[in-house]
Design a protein around this nucleic acid. Structure first.
Lengths: 215, 215
DNA sequence: GTCTATACGTCGATAGAC
DNA sequence: GTCTATCGACGTATAGAC
């Protein structure tokens, strides 16, 4: 068959699109393989299981995004050792938008996959990301912590997870929210606009001074 | 059989516990009915489907929490018409903790169910909550909006959804986060401590002044 | 090595007897 | 209301063809 890429890539391409559109649990292997025009069993041959296919789909993006994001953060901190929290978060915008060159709708797809992945999977994806990309995450966490030195480590732990929740939930439902915002407020937002909206929210929350325990 | 409540309640009690512990998709109807010691088909007889069972489990809490939360917000705004955002959010703490009187571990269970529910279900629970409890939600949204009058409605829409993401994600993974915080920082947090940690984060994010579009 | 046909166990759901 | 039996769809595993 002409113009037929190899089975593994065909599965990844079909799975990526369907996962981003419909979520993981709502996308069956039978749907993926029929859309990719490959046999059902080939998923297990090439990837072992559905969970590993999900990880492989995400890895195609993370392998590009994580090093690029790390480079950008290192660069901004070399220019300005006292970079603000907003500056640290904003540093991620360019690497995110660059994913559109990797694949059509790359940024949106990646953020939806990441959001859905963190949300739908209990642990296996969290584990995958922290073990495979832990060095990049640490670099980011350290940059944030040093930009808000008045927040003790234990408190910063919580605030970074609050931040993760905001990002993950927002990106998983970005399509729906954008549609509602358009209908209710006549406001058109692309994925970059949503990213730029969330950054000040996150910066403010992460860096807000601790309230006194005793009043 | 002595001390055997009716089938419907037995199903709800078993389902609530299992859903909160393991999540919805990881909890099969067969597990619920065997633990509740009722027949598998009785779930569909009494509730129609698994989705409707999920809604019924949440409704038992929402029917108590929503009116109590609304009363608390009305009360605090009568005392102080210019109540701060922190005050509005803090108003919800007492109604949440009161759920411990409704059922053992009620607060934790409710927040886990709410978090998991919003996260695992795409739309059907969002729809259920907004249609059945919309009046209470509006009251809360209005109170927040009036406590941050410098934020335009369209921007407030986004920030409230960022907030929803933080809450939902944090509460769905509160158990795991509490364990990590204990292991890494020797910090013991109950559900109230987590709630009180998240409020300043949310207030700061919701009320942060808009950044200039043009620099 | 790659791919395919086929089957296994579990799932939510349902029809029909009692 | 409650039960048994069964359905189609699911993820997964494997024997065997190319």
């Amino acid at each position: 068959m002409a113009n037929r890429s190899d089975t593994k890539t065909r599965i990844l391409d079909a799975a990526e699109k369907l996962f981003a559109e419909r979520g993981f649990s709502e996308t069956s292997l039978r749907l993926i393989t029929s859309k990719a025009e490959v046999n059902l069993a080939s998923v297990n041959y090439h990837f072992g299981s559905k969970k590993e296919l999900i990880r492989a789909v995400l890895a195609r993006y993370l392998d590009v995004f994580m090093p690029a994001a790390a480079d950008a953060i290192v660069a901004v901190r070399q220019e300005n050792a006292n970079a603000s929290l907003d500056a640290i978060f904003s540093t991620l915008v360019a690497p995110l938008l660059d994913l559109n060159q990797l694949r059509a709708e790359g940024t949106t797809t990646f953020l939806q996959l990441l959001g859905r992945g963190y949300i739908e999977s209990q642990g296996h994806l969290r584990w995958f990301i922290t073990t495979h990309y832990g060095e990049y995450l640490s670099l980011f966490v350290n940059a944030v912590a040093e930009s808000a030195p008045h927040i003790p480590p234990a408190e910063m732990f919580w605030r970074l997870h609050f931040t993760l929740g905001t990002v993950v939930f927002t990106m998983a439902s970005a399509d729906a929210l954008t549609e509602i915002a358009e209908a209710d407020f006549g406001e058109h937002n692309d994925i970059e606009a949503v990213i730029r909206k969330v950054i000040p929210y996150l910066s403010a929350g992460v860096s807000v001074p601790l309230t006194k325990d005793v009043i």
